[in-house]
Design a protein around this nucleic acid. Sequence first.
DNA 1: TAATCTGAATTAACCGTTTAATCTGGGTTT
DNA 2: AAACCCAGATTAAACGGTTAATTCAGATTA
Lengths: 333, 333
Amino acid sequence: MALTIRDVAKAAGVSTATVSNVLNNTGKVGRGTHRLVLSAVKKLGYFPNAHARNLASRESRTLGIIVSDIENPFFPEVIKSFEVRARSLGYDAILSDTNYDTRRTREAAERMMEHNVRGVAVMTSEISLRLINEFARRRIAVAFLDLAPVKGYSSNLRVDYFSGMKQIVEYLYQNGHRRIAFVAGRPALKSNVARLQAYENCMRELGLEPGPVLPGDLRFEGGLAAGTALLKMTPRPTAVMAVNDLTAVGVIKALTKSGVRVPADISVTGFDNTRLAEYSNPSITTVDIHRDMLGRMAADALHELCSAANPRGREYQVSAELVLGESSGPASQ
Amino acid sequence: MALTIRDVAKAAGVSTATVSNVLNNTGKVGRGTHRLVLSAVKKLGYFPNAHARNLASRESRTLGIIVSDIENPFFPEVIKSFEVRARSLGYDAILSDTNYDTRRTREAAERMMEHNVRGVAVMTSEISLRLINEFARRRIAVAFLDLAPVKGYSSNLRVDYFSGMKQIVEYLYQNGHRRIAFVAGRPALKSNVARLQAYENCMRELGLEPGPVLPGDLRFEGGLAAGTALLKMTPRPTAVMAVNDLTAVGVIKALTKSGVRVPADISVTGFDNTRLAEYSNPSITTVDIHRDMLGRMAADALHELCSAANPRGREYQVSAELVLGESSGPASQ
DNA sequence: TAATCTGAATTAACCGTTTAATCTGGGTTT
DNA sequence: AAACCCAGATTAAACGGTTAATTCAGATTA
């Protein structure tokens, strides 16, 4: 059917092993032959079959990444930097999306095994313990996002939510805010819980009573609902911290629709520093958690686990940084 | 290393061929044996190696999709529906991102060949004719987005920009707008040119002079610059049509920052109906081009090309539909 | 009863690479 | 000149599946 290494070998008048050695730069081939083979490759327009390669070589050169929702603006940047880094480390990268669904998560994990990945970055909470163990059994390296305690063959990327939340709370405090509400996400997600707890701890550290805490869903709609609920509260909070940017956008939308001004009447903050924070009107005060670094570190973590002789999982810290926008200001008296 | 079909065969006390036939549901295996094999598969936790499968079976069951930028909010939804459809048609799907870069586009195309895809959806303009021909030579089905004339082994998905633009222009016209500016995208992209031409034609159809046309880049920054430029114009347009939503957001940002009210002073419209249009404050009047349908149709188009005995490329139409938001209204006098 | 048929299983070749083991022949060493 | 080396090539056995060709046992038919 398509071109094979044999065609190239024949065209160059050498054996397939020689062609393979040229393509893999093993340094076992003389200069003259090397050139000869390369020119045959180019002339024929030959590309090696990735499947045959993967099958024949002892070690797989594929990394996988599983995210919950590619439409969530948090992920594309992570995915991109993961792929770029993976490629520059010599890996092929494959992506699966779970859509927050348990069945799809299982299918995604199975796909990773079918594709014989060397390692996989798991950036979703829906994954079951059974699958995690299955990865371990197959000696597939795993990098979790805010999920697992570090075990033998898995590392963990820990976003420093506490520091991020602390920066927001202190900033608001310095601007005179004392009643600071929080719009949470679904407690099923570990990272949502971590964010909420960080908020509560930071409030207490400053001698403030946490709350009110409103339920949300990480989505625009949840922010809208929370914003509407906020309007009915007495005394009304002077600031609202949302669990992520999208929620903050919803809150702002609900508030401004009712004639409440942001930030003159209420300050609103987000989290994640997605592009949305910048696009929003007013732009959102938020926390940058370096998503590109996150993707890169995931690839690095997997590479480290894969290449170490006696791999030990590590804990990676991803720092967070306050980014001021137009959605926050001094507390209204 | 990992489990193979031989392990399963041994555990079930049958040959590998039987296991293969069970897994592929060829219907050549008796009921009893079938059950026996399945239980062995389950007990061992076996998953077939996708590479070996792809290599051994004559026909590849993989489809690829190449997009220019996964961070562009236009694409994630397209990718998602493409993958879902591909999977339900029995294909594995792989994704590559070109980052608007020619070299990366070439690498993406090569990756598709290396992975021996059966067909590929090309949703970027940077692709070269040489690569397109290479696809044809290898009998790889191709589905283009707004790009190629239909040839033998490729189909084309044509978004009805004209209808979309017409709906916006007529809506603005009915609301009293006569001076309607346009913020374009980079002319290197076919779809940008199509949008611009549609705008110009629609204006002329209504007896209006097209223009001014401002340069943009499909990005927030371009919108910002265009918005700033607009403020200096006399007579100032009463409405601005942006080439996409992101640009519209930038335009709105620049205008409101200078105290110009949207839509009271100037109406602004976008295109694509990304979630951004909804999140924006004010929300954006835009055109929905059914991105989920786009992804699904791409997969369908490829499947059709792959499965037909004598494949003929087709032209697919993707309709467009006006979605009213808060960013537009009657023309200021 | 012998011949034939048929459904269900097996055998073995093949898919396109990699790679360990082997071969080859001219240059060094003694 | 015989013995030895070694860089540079080849040979052939995997890798984990699929599938056409083949075998086999039991049921059907003449």
